[in-house]
Design a protein around this nucleic acid. Structure first.
Lengths: 189, 189
DNA sequence: GGATGTGAAGTCGTTCACAGCT
DNA sequence: AGCTGTGAACGACTTCACATCC
């Protein structure tokens, strides 16, 4: 809406777009503070900034990518990360030489892929806060352990297996097929 | 659990694994029928089959992939689809010749990539029920329109934009960054 | 006048607790 | 004796409705 030059938006408009109730929108915002103006609505620009601040998106997040297979290299060249202030600042694999060609070809310039053994040092050096695991499922837990050792507190796991981490660390598992399962269910019933 | 040879499981065990209440597990199952044996628990093999049947996973799902970029070709070679009875039986792009090399290289054998104009015929011919959109956001809606024309009733959209379809069709949008946003929020607070 | 912010009412989902089977 | 299946109690979220303020 901001890009389209719209200045103000009401809870009713937002509700329609999100297919929810207008009171819901207001209550949800109210949980974090007061952002609107009575009789007017919400200023789009302000609301956008407020939401970004609440979600912690008003700054850059530095990430490491571990496991440069098909999915890994796809993520490396995923342009939308940049738009959203997410930045992959290091890439690791167990066999850097083997994968570097594939990555370079895609991005048009050589990309530095380091051996996993260098994860710990590099994570500190480059102030990495989020690790993205795109290894085979069999390696996911041990990679997670390395990330914990390196004190990388956020982990995004694309491997089809659940990962355990100590208190204070956060994991989100992304199961590709679970969205498909949902589709299959809806199409069946 | 089945692969590990476990025969029986209780609602309490399932609850622990899923970090929920045991009554929750039983109530959820009860919604679809009676699957357990009082005083014993649930037979793992039977439960697995029952759940697959409920979700509509007890058969093959034939899918088309549209947009063979980085993510698209990663999905083409995603082995876990097969394990779960999902099968990509056709691939489309606006420029088949341009992308065929990249795909072939990965899969080791040439893969047939058809021009989008052939989507409609091919969808019917190959009995496709699910379409996966991995095009740029700008093309997503028009590809969705083609899928609707071809009567492909399920759409999995990886493009970072929301798609509209008529009644009777189902869309699931997969927003990569929303999981990251969630991580960012949890790490901030 | 008109849309927000919010107590109160309403609805839905979760948990308890135990009867009913095995 | 033990665990499921389920009515009843509970708690949480959603929606209503309106006072409040621009």
């Amino acid at each position: 809406m901001d890009e389209r030059g719209e200045r103000v938006v009401s809870s009713a408009q937002l509700a329609t777009r999100c297919s929810v109730n207008a009171a819901q929108v207001r209550k949800d915002f109210a949980y974090f503070g007061e952002f609107g103006i009575r009789g007017v609505g919400y200023y789009v620009k302000d609301l956008l900034q407020d939401i970004k601040r609440i979600l912690g998106l008003n700054r850059e997040w530095r990430m490491a990518l571990i496991g440069i297979g098909n999915l890994g290299s796809a993520l490396l060249s995923y342009k939308d990360f940049l738009k959203q202030n997410y930045k992959i600042v290091a890439a690791f694999d167990i066999n850097p030489l083997k994968v570097i060609g594939r990555v370079s070809e895609k991005l048009g310039k050589p990309v530095e892929v380091l051996h996993i053994s260098r994860l710990r040092d590099t994570a500190k050096e480059r102030k990495i806060e989020i690790g993205i695991i795109t290894t085979p499922a069999s390696e996911a837990q041990s990679v997670a352990n390395l990330l914990v050792e390196a004190e990388v507190r956020g982990i995004l796991n694309f491997a089809p297996t659940q990962i355990k981490v100590p208190e204070g660390y956060v994991v989100r598992d992304v199961l590709f097929t679970s969205v498909l399962d949902n589709l299959a269910y809806l199409l069946t019933n």
